[in-house]
Structures are given as C-alpha cells and as structure tokens.
Nucleic acid binder design. Structure first.
Lengths: 398, 398
DNA sequence: CGCCTTATTTCAAGATGTGATTTAACCCAT
DNA sequence: ATGGGTTAAATCACATCTTGAAATAAGGCG
C-alpha cells in the first residue's frame, strides 16, 4: 500500500526524466495510470518542486496542455571518478549538468586508499563550495572505482591492478561525510552514462566494452546493470580467446586483454618491430602506432581487429544485446580506425541471428564520463523512490 | 490498484510454492504483509482451492498454527520436449509431479515442423486422456525447442541445426489446441527445471551449461532467465575459444562446440586415433571413449577438459554466477569423469575473486527435464498472476 | 475450570486508484 | 464579443485494499 504511491510517482518521474516534457494527459497514456491519478501524482510532485510546469502547448482548438519537466534545480548530486592515476570530483544538478569540478593527479593510487579518500573528501568540499550548492540539497555521492565492488556485510573494493584487496572504501569515506554514498565499478558507471546520455540511449540490452590499458565491460540486461553474484560480472578482458596464447598480467594465458588492451597491443608491436624499451605514454604510443605505415604496425592492428572482433562476437553470442558500444580511451582510438574490420570479424564469429540484432558502435561521451555515470547512481535511487530523498542512506546520526 | 491484490496473492503463493508449508502468521513475516492482509489473501486462495490447509502444528502453549500449502491438484500443466530426434509430452500436477507421458521417436525433426506439430498434438490428447485430467484444469502447454525463440509480432523458432528458419510454431500449434502456449529454448527450460528442483535451487545467479551433440547455456540473472534482445542469449557453444581453431558446423572457426560438443570430441578422437568412418550412436561412442585407455583417448579427454574449463572460466568472468551447472547428456558423461580437471582449468582462466564465488557442479535432474522445465513456464505465469488462470492466453474464441 | 499464550479473524479507519462529471482554457465562426 | 466546439485538467463519489487494533479461537497448564 505504502509503496503504491511511491511506485506511481516513480513511474511518472522516470518518464519525465528520460523522455523529456509531457503534459498530464500524455503522461496518463505513457504510464498506464488514469488521468485522475496522474493529476494527483503530478500535483504532489509539483508541490515538492521535483517537477515544474514548462509552458503551454496549443492543442488544436482545445485547452492547451501544460508541459511538465523535472526541475533540474530541485537537487544536486556528486560524481567521483577514482582512476588509476587521478581523482575527479564533479557536482551536477539533477539533470546531470555539471556545476563544478575538481581534479587531483596522482602518481598512482596503488596501495594508497587513504590518500584517495583524502582527495575525494577535499574535492567534495571544494566542489560543493564552488558550485554554491547547499549541502542539504545533495542527494548523494556516486563513486566509480577501478575494480570489483563486493557488497557483503561491508562494501569492499578489490582492484587487483592497483593492489586494493578488500579496501573498505565506504567506511573510509563515511568517516568524512554524512552524504549517502553509492560505490560501483568505474566501467559500470561509465556504462550508465552511455546508457542515459550516450550511445546506449533507448536500448534495454547492451554491452559497453571498455578498452583502455586493460579491458572490461559493463552489461545492461533489461535496462539494469547486471552485476552478478558479487559485482564481478563483465570481466570481458580476462576471457580466454586463445588457449595457450600470450601471457596476461592476470596470470592466465590467451586473455583478450593481452591482445586488445593498449598495453598488449603496444607490447606486441614492439616485439614485432624489434623495438626495445618501455612505453612512457601509452596514449601517444597508440596514436603513433595507428598513424604508422609499416608492415609491423599493419600486422599488429590487423591482429587487434581480429581479436576485438572475435571478442565482440562472443559478447553477442552470450548476451544477445541490441548494442555493443566500444569505449575507453584505447577503444575509441582503435575503434575509430578499425571499426569496419572489427564488425566484419564479429560477423564471422557471432551467430547470424544475434549478430543482426546487434549494432556495434562507439561511445559518444568520451572517457570523462565515469564521474557523470557515478552521479547517476544517487539519481537512480532518487527516481526509484519517486522523487523523495531517503534519509536512511545518510550516516545514522546517533 | 488492480494489480495490488494480484501481486500480494502472488507473493504469498510463490512463498508457499517454493518454500513449502507456512502458517498465516509466518507468511506475514516472510512476505512483509500485515497479518490481516495475509488472512484476507489466504482466505481467497483457499476459497479458490489454490491453497489448502495441511494440518496443525502446536505452538508452545497457544493456539496451534494452521499450515498451508499449494494444492497440487488445483491445476495441471503440460510440458513438451521437442528434441532433435524425439518429441516428448508429459502432464504434471501443479507441483510438477508427473501424471502421464508419451514419446515419439523420429529419425530427425529436420525440416519437419508439420510432423512435429502433429506429434505434439497427438501426444497432448493421449497424455491428457491417460492422466484423466479434465482439460479445463490445464494451465497451459510449455514447449522446449532446440533453437532460438524470437518473440516478434509472431513467435518464430530458428533452429539452424535442424533447418528450422523462422518456423511459426505457436501459430501451427494454435491450429490444434486452445490451451495457452509457452514456447522457449530447450536449454532454457532445462535450466528452469534445474533452478526450481535441481542443482540451481536457491541460487539467484547461475549459468546452466549444456553439452550434448551441440553446446548451449541458460543464464539466470537475478532469479529470472536472461534471454537478451531476441531470445538468443547464452549461445555459449559458438563462443570463440581458439582463434583460427577447428572449423565448427556453424561456419566459424574455433568455437567451443567444436571442442567439447559430443560431435566435436568424437571427431577429434577419430582423427587422432586414425579411425575412419562415422559414428552411429554418439552416446555409446562417448561412453566407449571415456572407458578407453589409449593415448589418443587420454589426449582427447585432456584437451576436452582444457577447453571446457576455459569455457567455464569465461562464463564465470562474464556472468559472475553463484553456480555453474554442467548438464546435457554429454556434459554429464564428460563431467562425471573430468569435473576435477575442468575445475582446475577454470580456476586458472577465471579471475580469482569471481571463481571463488562460483560452485561448479553437475545437473541433478538428468536430461529428461526439458519437458518438466517447459512445464514451469505455465506455472510461472500462474504464480505471477496470483493463482488465477489468465483467459487471455487461450485461443481467442471468435 | 479459569488463566495464559499464540494464531487467526474481524473491525473500523485511512489511503489510493478510477470512471464519470465538471471545470478550465483556448479556437473559431458568426 | 459571444456562444459553440474541443481538448486538458481537476474534482467527486465510490470501490478496493492495506493496516493496526481489538476481538475471538484454540490449545496448554496449574
């Protein structure tokens, strides 16, 4: 009973949030509620200032409809991107327009959970101040981290590549803020951002494949992120594509990451071209590789496309998505040049029918959207609660 | 509003169906409803004879609680297993105890949709008669088919391996029966059976890996089967495990199926042992192979375990399930002997953390449970409807 | 036999959705 | 400008449902 109104508020609110402006009349049709109920629900939402009227629109001789939209200024959210070498904090309004940001570069976050927490909290105060937002209007803080997030009795972050083994990030942040905290894998938050505002808009089933130094994926099943039993779903990078293939930094052999991750691609190129030494800036090196017109470069890129295509084919076979969205800084670089080749290989490896259902495209938001995606987490909570802040998520004050 | 009572009936009913006997008092706690509501809801369910009282249980000095349980005889369902070489029809009571069955062996169902429909309908009448069930008590007919089920404007079955390209099975069956029809991939229905009554009980995230002649999988995400955009999710068999590997009957190279499907295993064995000729009975051949103590057999089985392990590792990395359940007639044969080796390989290929979450075990219900799983489909519908038959699913009578 | 305990039902109150009806707001032809 | 037509939104009366509290049922125990 108590949930009925909430769920109806959520239905209406979500519609307005994701599909723009509607009149009460149209909302009734769109949500399946009766006009009377929509009137009631909208009345409440307007009273609460979650929704505002946004002008009239003539209606062919009749009373004009009153358009409604979400009030962007009703509340704000914070998104945090904890990357391997930086911490980025951003404040957004309810519709995720950025109001302020603050970044910290770090040598590496490896084994430095405390330092990260310090930066996040500093960025938080800084940004909130810069944006001029009253803290009481903040819905919460979403945090994207480079690792697996386990939700047990306590939230723990496992980020193997940076030596975080069971870092109790929530508890650590909790010591410095009362705001509701939402922590998720950065790949998932970036995926959310693409789903809401990028290449995933409108899809209910999608896989966002992220290629950077390493390789990951975010899976959206029936409109919601699929996290698996313990938040570890979507570890596409360590999927075996070549039994007994190249060794991967995870310890196994033949992982996809060893072939299409930036590190792997560059390493193979150096081997093939007989170049020694280490890469200092992977991004520049990858750009150079893409521009280079040598047999070795062609060979490596060709191979990369083949592995990426087969890997995407596997995703298509297993998930049967409407979209496969290729992103991550390396994914975008490689994809901009290799996408046609990748599609071709994927077509060969995926079954005919599922392949036809799947559009393979590139991310639209760039790689900075981890923080924005993190900010979608508190917003999602807010929308699901029908536009009500949930006080239970704050720090329990004595 | 109209759904509120329905959803509460469904809550109560599901609890009783899956978790056995409860008193009204306990149900209130278990479902989160008030005792008053439970009383009302249960009253209705008992009036409708969906639920019956099942004895008293003393309660430490107070009024004894009345135990409630689902009435197995309230309704019946039919499950149909359309295999590549047989059609099996079974009638069950509401709790899926078998009341009657009827099988037809066929040379092959390839390109013989009409013949299959004929057999299904014949089996239906036969079984219903044998079981003595009044047709009005049937909730519907679930059908498991060996291929992809596309739910578009019309339900179409694509079973590449038997030459079914867009067979309108629902329409064809509809011509011969008024009963509600539920059609799904046989791998999914078998998976459902395992989830309800077999190795998957209690898990919310699981992958049921099926190895027969071919290879497939059924994915359960958050308690519900994940079908993807067009019913084609879980095509594990045509996942690439060895770029440029053995050719697969799907046309691609290096598919898992070419290495661990019975056909593939036997073919490799023949090659290795230098045997000519064709296999007439795959099951006998596979049993022989498992019993054989030759270098060629050891080599092939070893390889098979490696591919199966890597394939399962990939499932674990991508889906992060609580369980991976190996089934299918070949899967059970191979698994009974190779499971330890498979686990070992999977541990090497999967990431540490997800691997630890996942129990790898064998199916418990044998391979005959496709039909039982198919029968879960109408039952699921019935439970979700709160124990009410949905007349809209019948053939619209003029 | 009366009191105690626990389970279930009954009751009255409050909340909510809905169809029908009414009111509002605008266009347009006269 | 005015009244009829049209569409949107609000209001109303009613039915449905949940719920906490109170009452009742059913047994144990001294």
């Amino acid at each position: 009973m108590r949930d009925l109104r909430t769920s109806n508020r959520a239905r209406v609110l979500r519609r307005l949030y994701f599909d723009g402006q509607f009149s009460r009349h149209e909302l009734a049709g769109a949500t399946g509620l009766s006009q009377a109920s929509v009137s009631n629900v909208v009345g409440e939402l307007v009273d609460d200032q979650v929704v505002v009227e946004a002008g009239l629109v003539g209606s062919d001789g009749g009373r004009p409809r009153v358009l409604l939209r979400v009030n962007p200024d009703h509340a704000c959210v914070v998104g945090v991107d904890v990357g391997e070498t930086h911490v980025l904090v951003e404040v957004f309004d309810l519709t995720l327009r950025r109001l302020a940001m603050s970044t910290f570069q770090m040598e590496s976050i490896a084994n430095r959970g405390e330092a990260v927490v310090e930066r996040v909290l500093a960025g938080l105060s800084q940004c909130i101040e810069d944006s001029g937002v009253d803290p009481s209007r903040l819905l919460g803080v979403g945090v994207g981290v480079p690792g697996l997030v386990e939700r047990g009795s306590e939230l723990l972050v496992h980020a193997q590549t940076v030596g975080w083994n069971g870092v109790p990030l929530e508890r650590m942040l909790r010591a410095g803020t009362d705001l509701p905290l939402f922590i998720d894998n950065g790949a998932n938050t970036l995926g959310q951002a693409e789903m809401w505002f990028g290449a995933g808009r409108g899809a209910r089933n999608a896989v966002i494949a992220l290629v950077g130094s390493g390789v990951g994926a975010s899976v959206i099943a029936d409109g919601v992120p699929y996290r698996g039993a313990s938040g570890g779903a979507g570890e596409w990078g360590h999927t075996t594509l070549a039994l007994d293939g190249r060794p991967c930094r995870c310890g196994a052999n033949g992982c996809l990451e060893a072939y299409i991750g930036a590190k792997g691609v560059l390493a193979r190129h150096r081997e093939l071209a007989g170049l020694p030494g280490v890469v200092t800036d992977e991004e520049i090196a990858l750009r150079d590789l893409l521009a280079e017109d040598s047999p070795a470069a062609r060979e490596v890129l060709n191979e990369t496309a083949r592995y990426a295509g087969a890997g995407i084919g596997n995703l298509i076979n297993l998930f049967n998505p409407e979209r496969v969205i290729l992103g991550g800084w390396a994914g975008l670089l490689l994809g901009s040049q290799l996408l046609p080749a990748i599609r071709e290989v994927a077509a060969k490896h995926a079954l005919h029918h599922p392949y036809q259902q799947a559009k393979i495209k590139l991310c639209e938001l760039g790689t900075e959207s981890v923080a924005m995606g993190a900010a979608t987490l508190p917003v999602t909570e807010f929308l699901n609660a029908g536009g009500v802040r949930n006080p239970a998520l704050m720090r329990p004050t004595a």
